[in-house]
Design a protein around this nucleic acid. Structure first.
Lengths: 360, 360
DNA sequence: ATCCAAAATACAATCGATTGTATTTTGAAT
DNA sequence: ATTCAAAATACAATCGATTGTATTTTGGAT
């Protein structure tokens, strides 16, 4: 008996799609209206649960819509409403774990609010960033969340967004220009903590792998480094600062230069984990003991930092939370209909995770 | 002199946006038409470089459009043309390096062809996968590229796409159902090579960390494993197969069980790198020497596989090329206007990368 | 049975771009 | 100067959903 019932259900489930297949082309509210001898406006209101349509009619419309396999045409709806319920996200690259976790947070919050997310990668290239913004404008996104590329020094391309009334919230890699909202961690404090941690472990000559100084985050991590030195009465030496794009290869090259210094270095604060890993590989290959000879602290808590041996001490950035907070802020700004939208900057907590690479 | 010129240019560049700002709202072809005393249809055709508009007019229109900061409304255009030039991509999670590199390939090819990409993560959940497909349908994507989730065993949700005439191409994690195109690597051969490699290194008792057997890729890697054993006259033992979802934690747990076996294992072929890494961490922590006691081979060549010590031998999958090939195939299918579109399966090359974890 | 406000639904314009058809303009041939 | 096909442009419908306004329907009060 149960089997028969199941069978019938299965048949039903199978037949429905077939019927849809027959009428090949997409079902519109007009088709539903025609089928029910109603006006398309009533169907539209019924589907949108408007109080102007009686419940009985709503039920009928909903049933028919389901039966016919109706699916709202987002394009038409957005065009009419001048609102796409879509947000654009621009990150340097999705393969960085930090960014992919931010994206997970963004998607979660956006999805709950009924928004679709378009993810784009600048791949650290300014030109791609400009093109992406144009694409997103063409797609008529309601807002944009972004972390700028390492090459970005000029912010004119962002003004178009403001001018078209498209909300913009930066996360992590922000711009130091007024009237924009940000969701950040305290990079100054992160840089400070990382460096002080090395100092407290007994390091006296601490090198810093710094990132492009046009980015606020790297500027602030650098400032934090300097502040920790001065707080503990250690001299700041320009020669110990190695600027780069912080790729793995940069970490290697910096280490090579660093080993050639007359005064041996006993600690490294790298502004990201990737360069720190590059350094660890190079140093280990060249007989340097980590952390005994040189202790290392990275930044971002990428998953590789737990895989490398010794595991890398680093500053943890709460990616998912940053994504959620940035999205919530953006949606608030989008919703607040042109009202006074005073830009906000939210600082999220970050913390140092101590691992083997700094255990002296 | 040069400075003055530069200054003027800068001023010009500054003024333009300001003018745009004045007229706050978005510029349409109608605005351009009005400004030039032309019809909007002519403007549209001029902007689309139609042969029905004389070059002189095109120049005028283009200039005016640029001056007014016009940007085509993709929604209106797509609605009218019933073509969005958008493709949806569904992956289990973007944080897996393999998938993010596939996405890079997809974006590159799609972008060149003038397509926008919407990236979605199923997070290995069947329900999310279903919702995503509905979202993409609502967005009226022209085609979909996907790698199914580990939970996906039922393919009804995919039929809707076919029925709506939306092209679908699988990559990597495909479905074994007819009439769909695929871009894959030879997983059987990958599993075979990985296992044979261990055998040639002298392993006699090789365990296999297998993935969910509803996925073809894991089924085939498993088959490759068995085939290598039989080719080399080694017995297949059910007890040496550890099925799981291949997360890091699974690698750990499998290793624990594996160490408890009466007959000691001397090699592991893991169907992905993540579980292999989990195993390496557990085994190393428990005094097992890799590769001396147990040699290990993973699958996918995730970046962590070069960071772990010893570095992990693995099967390399050309992510970017897979992404490019899948996109090219999809676009071909989209463009081929309803013509006979015989489904195709493209097999990409994969290769074993030998590292320390299997150097006996 | 009649009336009327409230409730329910229908009508019609609109969002912005595209495209088939119709009209005007051009310029070469007579 | 006239004619006419070709060239250039204008007109108008359309994509599908939304929404302000207008009309019809309902059911309670008289």
């Amino acid at each position: 008996m149960i089997t028969a019932k199941k069978l019938r259900n299965l048949e039903g489930a199978n037949y429905l799609p077939k019927r849809i297949q027959m009428q090949n082309n997409k079902v519109t509210i007009h088709d539903i209206a025609k089928a029910l001898n109603l006006d398309s406006s009533t169907v539209s209101r019924a589907l949108n649960d408007s109080p102007r349509v009686i419940q009985k009619t709503k039920d009928i419309v909903l049933a028919k819509a389901a039966e016919m396999g109706y699916q709202r045409n987002h394009l038409a709806s957005s065009l009419r409403k001048s609102k796409t319920n879509t947000i654009g996200v621009i990150v340097p690259r999705i393969s960085r774990h930090f960014f992919s976790s931010v994206i997970s947070g963004i998607e979660e919050t956006a999805y709950e609010a009924g928004y679709t997310v378009i993810i784009c990668q600048s791949l650290e290239q300014f030109n791609r960033e400009k093109k992406i913004i144009n694409t997103l404008l063409g797609q008529r996104v309601d807002g944009v969340l972004m972390s700028i590329s390492m090459e970005t020094k000029d912010y004119k391309h962002l003004e178009v967004l403001k001018k078209q009334g498209i909300q913009l919230v930066f996360f992590d890699r922000h711009c130091d220009i007024p009237n924009y909202s940000n969701v950040l961690i305290d990079d100054f404090n992160g840089g400070f903590e990382a460096t002080e941690h090395l100092i407290l472990k007994g390091c006296k000559h601490i090198a810093h792998f710094s990132g492009p100084q046009n980015l606020e985050i790297y500027k602030n991590r650098f400032k934090g480094y300097k502040h920790a030195l001065s707080k503990h009465n250690l001299p700041f030496e320009e020669a110990l600062v190695f600027p780069s794009k912080l790729m793995e290869e940069d970490g290697r090259k910096n280490s090579e230069k660093l080993l050639a210094l007359p005064n041996p270095v006993d600690g490294i604060f790298s502004a990201n984990d990737v360069a720190a890993i590059g350094a660890m590989k190079y140093l280990t290959d060249n007989g340097v003991k980590i952390p005994e000879d040189i202790a290392i602290v990275g930044f971002s808590n990428e998953p590789i930092s737990t895989v490398i041996n010794p595991a890398l001490t680093t500053i943890n950035q709460p990616g998912i939370e940053i994504g959620k907070a940035a999205t919530a802020l953006l949606l608030k700004q989008i919703t607040k209909e042109n009202g006074a939208l005073d830009p906000q900057t939210i600082i999220m907590d970050s913390n140092l995770i101590e691992r083997q690479s700094s255990k002296k």
